[in-house]
Design a protein around this nucleic acid. Sequence first.
DNA 1: CCCAGAGTCAACACAGTGTCGAAAAAAGTC
DNA 2: GACTTTTTTCGACACTGTGTTGACTCTGGG
Lengths: 201, 201
Amino acid sequence: MSAPVRRKGPSKGDRKQEALLETAERLLATKPLAEIGIEELARGAGISRSSFYFYFESRQAMLLALLSRVSDDLVTQVVECWLEPQSDMRTTVGTSIGLAVQMWDEHGAVLLAAQNPDAPPEAQEFMADLNGRLVAATEDMIDRNRATGAAPAGPPSAHSLATMLVGMTEHTISHNAGALGRAELVDTLTAIWHRAIFAAD
Amino acid sequence: MSAPVRRKGPSKGDRKQEALLETAERLLATKPLAEIGIEELARGAGISRSSFYFYFESRQAMLLALLSRVSDDLVTQVVECWLEPQSDMRTTVGTSIGLAVQMWDEHGAVLLAAQNPDAPPEAQEFMADLNGRLVAATEDMIDRNRATGAAPAGPPSAHSLATMLVGMTEHTISHNAGALGRAELVDTLTAIWHRAIFAAD
DNA sequence: CCCAGAGTCAACACAGTGTCGAAAAAAGTC
DNA sequence: GACTTTTTTCGACACTGTGTTGACTCTGGG
């Protein structure tokens, strides 16, 4: 019986493409996408400017590739675990938000670029979809807690409450990651979530 | 005594400059600054592309002029009235948020452009300053209510609470102005503010 | 009438993007 | 190893948009 077929390692091109993506992510941490030239990306990966177009149609197309690289992490780690029922609400919300903060630490630059109004529609749709899933999960959680009487009924509707809490979380994480300490960030967000959902007026 | 000096009406140049700013604000409502060409702006004001540079050094410089046009409204109407003590907290917060929503209706496009990471540093500083004032006013309000025992003491600290509530409000208004009705938007935001500040855990 | 400065614009230089086709490098086949 | 095929590279080009310059016109006051 012959030895198992030697798996073709990643070709030279695959490695160059990866190098481009890594260069891009590195540069995105220092300045917005619009200010990153193709030349700069290409030199970062050791190829000429026009070779860049062998790998990506444009800078925007590269952003999409960058997003899909990040997408797996994001969907499995954040979306699927978002508000998974745990012992008590406080812990559930706290760990979910903690997870979101960590995800931002790792991929914040890419997500920020995708949120930019100049980003291609696909990128913005990706972000909108992500947001939509988180809102839906939150809405469910609120509805469940209202059904059991643990949380007071609306108004405000579960949907608008969920929209704003998720929005607040995204906004706070992306704008105050540096200014406020991570612990204070998570604790304050958790407290607001808890009060907004469970406190009667 | 001589007749009062005839006030020089706005010169031709002043009118052209105004026309440029109006064209810019109109176009900003439909697409981001980066996608607006100088040519487009110039034609909108009835001058040639190169004449644009007689009025502004660059597209970014024009954004600053646009911002300062909006600044007066913004500072007097929102910053100065933000959380002015009224009958009860609910009303105070509600009317302040309503005011912010209205301001966004009128000048949202310009403010959105100024928030963009590609905007010139001055524009971003302007927004940061605006944000800082609102946070400071909110923080004061929270501290006052804590001092009288109307609101429970922290943690969370008044500062981080204020930061996140203001952030949530900005984010919600700018991202959900269309999707949620204005009334629901104001009511839900108000409810969250009230609970976050006054509810004990 | 003449002048000053306000306003205008065609023509230019330049930087960045994206395309093309020819050539070099790598991989596969006998 | 010589061959074909596919992958990868890049120089040269066309194009678009920006910002600058210098000469021109217009306007109003003395």
